[in-house]
Design a protein around this nucleic acid. Structure first.
Length: 439
DNA sequence: TTTATTGTAAACACCC
DNA sequence: TGGGTGTTTACAATAA
């Protein structure tokens, strides 16, 4: 319908680095992930034997990881130090940085930001204290930080919503207590896709300068520049890399805790009613690893129609499935597992949007954050109450599944051990190599 | 040339 | 009833 505002060649040409605004195009190709993405991608791809073999034998990523790690810094309380490289408001423009940022900040108020909507939303959400924002707040954040949109046609809001809905990176969370505080839901970043988003950010025109400039003081949360992306990138990369060794253990915990979840899914195939469930059917990151295995091994879950692979998910889905199968390895930390898994899994467990309120989840996780999250026990209770005829058989098959998952978990730990050993060997080799060079 | 990604527009439904 | 929100579809532009 008519010319697409902001998408004309003219607009793109005037947008700084617009030719590189591939956005998520790179990260969506994780199926054939090259070494570049490897740096930010979790390494514990344990289930996919091929990729696991590749990664275990190809140790290039270790060097990249080392390089990355050397460039990160953190402020107090573990908060990342923001590198204001691209302040559209004109302040805090660092003298350091690549030449590509000599001018863009001056134009950005009137030209389109060199970030895709996905990245803008990501930045907005990550900028929020709770890492969750309603659409309206996302609008506000974008408007605040990218004045371009203040004068842009209102279609961009539609684009934001469109992105939120279609982009798997974003997860809708129902507000507590029935949307008392305004319309709509909160939107969060799917932790599974954080590395992807970070990679996309990294590929933005001047993100390479992230590691160059470090401001003297930690920023206040309320006054972050758009380059909060840099901090997000740094933080998550570091966490992903440094804590990658716990991924296998995390995966195992998730496997163990999700056994019952998988059982539940055996009994109740997920209806594909909501978009969230649709996302899940695409291989949503919130899929429990066990559920994935159950789908693959037992074909109990809804099959995935390749025809549905379109828009914002497309080719990445198969890769994401692999990534998902590799446990929640891309979760940056146990904390994130702690925070997201129960909620997200809860949604799909019964096909309804059964999010706990924040209070509920707090209570649930206090006792056993990873293991007996409320929904799991509740789900089991639900199934036990049904007393269906095939209960015994189901129980038996569930025990088989249990055993199978335990074996898988053992394999995960085994591979994790291999990784650790390899890491030690490599670091030793590197040290020796450096010594030889010195000589 | 094909495919995937991204942006935009529009229609529709739902809720407050 | 109107506006905000969320979903879906379609199409175009662009990059790989």
């Amino acid at each position: 319908m008519g010319p697409i505002i902001g998408m004309t060649p003219e607009n793109r040409a005037e947008t700084p680095g617009a030719e590189k605004v591939a956005g998520l195009s790179q990260i969506y190709k994780m199926g054939s992930l090259p070494e570049a993405v490897d740096a930010a991608r979790p390494k514990a791809t344990l289930v996919d034997s091929e990729s696991a073999d590749d990664e275990l034998t190809n140790l290039n990523w270790l060097h990249e990881s080392t390089n990355l790690l050397t460039n990160f810094s953190f402020g107090s309380e573990g908060l990342p130090i923001v590198s204001p490289l691209y302040d559209i408001e004109g302040d805090d423009v660092p003298s350091l940085g690549p030449s590509c940022y000599q001018n863009p900040e001056k134009k950005s108020a009137t030209s389109k930001p060199p970030y895709s909507f996905s990245l803008l939303i990501y930045m907005a959400i990550e900028h929020s204290p709770n890492k969750c924002l309603p659409v309206k707040e996302i609008y506000s954040w974008i408007l605040d930080h990218f004045p371009y949109f203040a004068t842009a046609p209102t279609g961009w809001k539609n684009s934001v919503r469109h992105n939120l809905s279609l982009n798997k990176c974003f997860q809708k969370v129902e507000r507590s207590h029935g949307k008392v505080n305004g319309k709509g839901s909160l939107w969060c970043v799917d932790p599974e896709y954080k590395p992807n988003l970070m990679q996309a950010l990294k590929k933005q025109p001047c993100s390479s300068a992230l590691t160059i400039y470090t401001p003297p003081a930690s920023p206040k949360s309320g006054s972050l520049s758009p380059h909060y992306l840099s901090s997000v990138l740094k933080q998550n990369q570091v966490r992903t890399l440094k804590e990658s060794d716990i991924d296998a253990a995390t995966a195992m915990m998730l496997l163990n805790t999700s056994i019952q979840q998988g059982i539940l899914e055996c009994e109740k195939p997920l209806p594909l009613k909501t978009a969230m469930q649709k996302k899940r059917s695409y291989g949503n990151a919130f899929h429990h690893p066990s559920a994935m295995r159950l789908q693959e091994n037992d074909s109990l879950a809804t099959s995935i129609d390749p025809k549905e692979d379109h828009n914002y998910s497309a080719s990445s889905m198969a890769a994401q499935r692999c990534a998902s199968r590799s446990s929640m390895s891309s979760l940056s930390s146990v904390d994130e597992v702690y925070e997201f898994i129960p909620k997200s899994s809860h949604v799909g467990s019964d096909g309804s949007e059964g999010f706990h309120s924040e209070e509920d989840t707090d209570v649930d996780y206090e006792d056993d954050p990873l293991g007996d999250s409320g929904y799991v026990s509740q789900a089991c209770a639900d199934t036990s109450e049904k007393g269906q005829p095939g209960k015994k058989m189901r129980k038996q098959s569930c025990q088989e599944i249990d055993e199978e998952l335990k074996e898988a978990a053992g394999s995960l730990l085994h591979l994790a051990g291999i990784r650790t050993c390899l890491g030690s060997l490599i670091s030793t080799a590197k040290t020796q190599n450096q010594k030889q060079r010195k000589k």
